[in-house]
Design a protein around this nucleic acid. Structure first.
Lengths: 214, 214
DNA sequence: GAGTGTGAAAACATTCACAGCT
DNA sequence: AGCTGTGAATGTTTTCACACTC
């Protein structure tokens, strides 16, 4: 075991998946083998063992992994215990969906602000928060020490919003607008483009000879 | 050049990205080099050349790529010219966001049906379509030969809906519900879990020593 | 000169297979 | 006997570097 080594990106991407698998188990279950977990996560069992081994020596030979230890370690490693605060900019349908989405709070992310510049939306209450004008972002970010900005605006304003968020001290951006944001040193940006996902599906749709995806 | 060879998955994932980059260019521009495209897409320029070389010999040495040829070829390869039909199941905020999302139609996907089982939503009109009860899926799928099902329901019903969609002849599923769908032979499933994206961001948030992401 | 297409090298990721612990 | 943790083997992806074309 090689403690405190960087975890490969491919593994990082799977850690939330493992966490989700554990959640899906019934409460009785106390332990799980790499084989079982692999089956649920639909990956190879050696993969599971290697991935988890980056988090330390968590399993017991001949037995398997203790679920609660595993959960704790995954949460710790992913930084879900820090209780990061996030703001959502743009409260159209997508922004509202994100605001209502329970999965965030559940995973330790606190949404502490909703922003929009549409007068019809300002002061509306959504998921227990009052929508504020974008000019107020700085105040909220300072007050709650916001680390994550979620952009759910139309594409044409996304870059401006991103710059503003970074100005406010935000360190990570999750972008749902269908544009490419400029890279900024020290700032993590992840983009989720809904239509790109469909396009990838589409590629695999036209070729009947693709059974062997496994 | 190695015509009609399968394109590696890693490349397929980037093709929609390249397409988006081209869209972002102003209409004057007629040609583009791998270096320029790489810069916009934020990947290595050799990567761009290798990726595009899978689509055939599209560039001109010493010159670069013709944008319209490139666009056409990307669309062709991704199967965006087939005009696949899709249905959206679940018209809460997320489903509505997807229904309104222009990017789908723009990329050649026609959303031909919206479904929900909430009586308050049935018969509502959203983005020009009338919301129908889930029982009606089969009719619509038969009528429009629907290839893609988009699931935007709560997690607890997602698997049932998925099974139903597959029964209706749908060949690909894009799942936004935060659950793991069972694998089914010959059916492509892609899941987008909004909270997983945040968790990945979170991992890179706690470690100040991660500048060198490049 | 400028910029593609691609062998070859390097880096990264997955899987096998088994020694070693419980 | 059962299951982890991990070297070694294999497979995939990225990057370098340059011959080749315009």
């Amino acid at each position: 075991m090689k403690e405190n080594n960087k975890i490969p990106p491919a593994t990082v991407k799977r850690l939330p998946l493992y966490l989700q698998c554990l959640e899906q188990l019934d409460d009785q279950t106390i332990g799980i083998s790499s084989k079982k977990l692999a089956e649920i996560a639909k990956v190879n069992d050696a993969q599971v063992r290697r991935d988890l081994s980056y988090l330390g020596t968590l399993g017991t030979r001949g037995v398997g992994y203790d679920i609660s230890t595993l959960r704790n370690q995954l949460q710790l490693e992913l930084g879900l215990v820090e209780g990061w605060s996030a703001v959502i900019v743009g409260v159209g349908n997508l922004g509202s969906a994100l605001a209502h989405y329970g999965g965030f709070q559940e995973r330790g992310f606190g949404v502490v602000g909703l922003f929009d510049d549409d007068p019809k939306k300002i002061n509306k209450q959504i998921a227990g928060l009052v929508v504020k004008p974008i000019a107020d972002i700085k105040d909220v970010c300072d007050k709650y020490n916001v680390a994550i900005g979620i952009i759910a605006t139309p594409g044409n304003v996304a870059q401006v919003i991103a710059d503003q968020l970074i100005d406010c001290g935000v360190k990570s951006i999750l972008n749902f607008a269908p544009v490419l944001l400029k890279n900024i040193p020290d700032i993590q940006i992840r983009s989720v483009d809904l239509s790109q996902e469909l396009q990838i599906l589409s590629y695999y749709l036209d070729r009947p000879v693709l059974k062997a995806v496994k």
